[in-house]
Simulated scan of single mutants.
Amino acid sequence: MKTALRVTAFTLGLTAAFGLALGVGHAVGPGGKPAPAGHDGGHDSGHGTGHDGGHEEHAGHGAAAGQLPGGLQISERGYTLALDNAFVTAGASTDLRFRILGPDGRALTAYHPQHEKELHLIVAPRDLSTFQHLHPTRAADGTWSAPTALPAAGEYRVFADFLPAGETEGLTLGADLHAAGDLRPAPLPETGRSVTVDGYTVTLEGDLTPGAGGALTLSVSRDGHPVTDLQPYLGAYGHLVALRAGDLAYLHVHPESTTPGPAITFHATAPSAGTYRLFLDFKHGDTVRTAAFTLPTPTAAAPAATTPAPAPGATEHAAHQH
């Protein structure tokens, strides 16, 4: 998930060290209903969703002191994310192919599924203007492939979030992907606290306070009416990915909420002052949509334009691919 804070933990510039503690989400149980409180979404007890690369152990517990957040490294604990081709053309359809190499140097073929998938793949540009949560397929030889198209020229980050079979702690590895084309740098979009995507309005309440835990609540409405029948998507009523502007450190959490809307609540602790891009995936009417927010911490100013912008005509909100 679809498709890579984790905010507890949507892929982008990833190069600094910080720890993040976020709430462990609730999985969907039999019949498509959320699992009881305390269920970790199908992961082994004590190992959380693992989408921040540290795979928090319980709600409120993040990466160990001094541990890098997810996605900042292409190799970790002997595992390596190996892209078949790191150079593509913006706007053109491409088959993104890659392998996870194990400690023995061979392609990994055995995984422990997390939130209904063996591996979650996130692709995002370093300007955090778009977000794709892809669902690659794996061949018998361990090669993964996912059809996609990068909307604009620039530098992208690919995040692979997975748990190898036989391991108890998952990983989030990141690699750079280069898209050739007309590069047009621009600052992060200013979204405010309410965004609209496909006729749905999503409102954000709460703040990311460095070093202090707090709640982020995202409420979904349509035509002025609260949406109270959100559908489970990959085992939860919502998925939130947060990427820190400037280094694209990757965080991903699942909600504390156990009701199908309109509010979806996540517990988050910002590891540092800064500006974050939040990408909320939610499903309604059998379609997954992504709402994107730009959220500075209370003491942080918005960053200057240093990264590429989407091509002319590209929409401000995130692109979600299935």
Rank of each mutant, 00 (worst) to 15 (best):
Q114F: 10
D95V: 08
T89E: 11
E76A: 11
T94V: 15
F98P: 05
A82M: 03
L72R: 15
T80I: 06
A86Y: 01
A82V: 00
P69C: 00
L96C: 06
L108M: 03
R106M: 06
S75N: 07
L96F: 14
T109K: 11
A86S: 12
D95T: 10
T109R: 15
Q114V: 15
V88A: 11
P69N: 00
N85S: 12
H115D: 06
S75L: 05
G66D: 10
L96G: 01
K117I: 03
K117W: 02
T80G: 05
A92C: 12
I74K: 15
S93G: 13
G102I: 07
F87Y: 05
F87M: 04
D95Y: 03
L72D: 12
Y79E: 00
F98E: 04
Q114K: 14
Q67A: 15
I74D: 02
R99G: 13
T80M: 05
I74E: 15
L68R: 14
F98D: 04
R106I: 05
L72K: 07
G105R: 09
L101K: 09
A86K: 02
G71T: 05
R77Q: 13
R106K: 10
L68D: 04
G102D: 13
D84T: 13
S93F: 02
P113Y: 03
K117Q: 07
Y79V: 00
G91T: 10
P103A: 02
G78W: 14
L72Y: 04
E116G: 00
G105E: 08
A110L: 08
A107L: 11
P113A: 01
L81F: 10
L96A: 10
T109A: 07
L68S: 07
T80R: 12
G66H: 14
G66M: 03
K117Y: 05
R97A: 15
Q67F: 13
H112A: 14
R77V: 08
D84F: 02
P103Q: 01
A86C: 10
Q67T: 08
N85R: 14
I74L: 10
A92I: 01
H112N: 11
H112V: 03
G91L: 09
I74W: 11
H112I: 03
P113L: 03
L101F: 02
L108D: 04
L83D: 09
G70M: 12
S75P: 01
D104A: 15
T80Q: 01
P69H: 02
A82L: 05
G70D: 06
L101G: 04
S93C: 00
G102M: 06
A92Y: 02
A107I: 09
Y79K: 03
I100R: 10
E116D: 10
A86P: 13
G71P: 09
G70S: 13
P113M: 06
S75M: 09
F87E: 12
A90K: 03
L96I: 14
I100Q: 08
R99H: 02
Q73D: 05
H112C: 06
T109C: 02
D84G: 04
T94I: 02
I100M: 14
G91I: 01
I74V: 14
L96P: 06
L101I: 04
T80P: 00
G71W: 09
H115M: 13
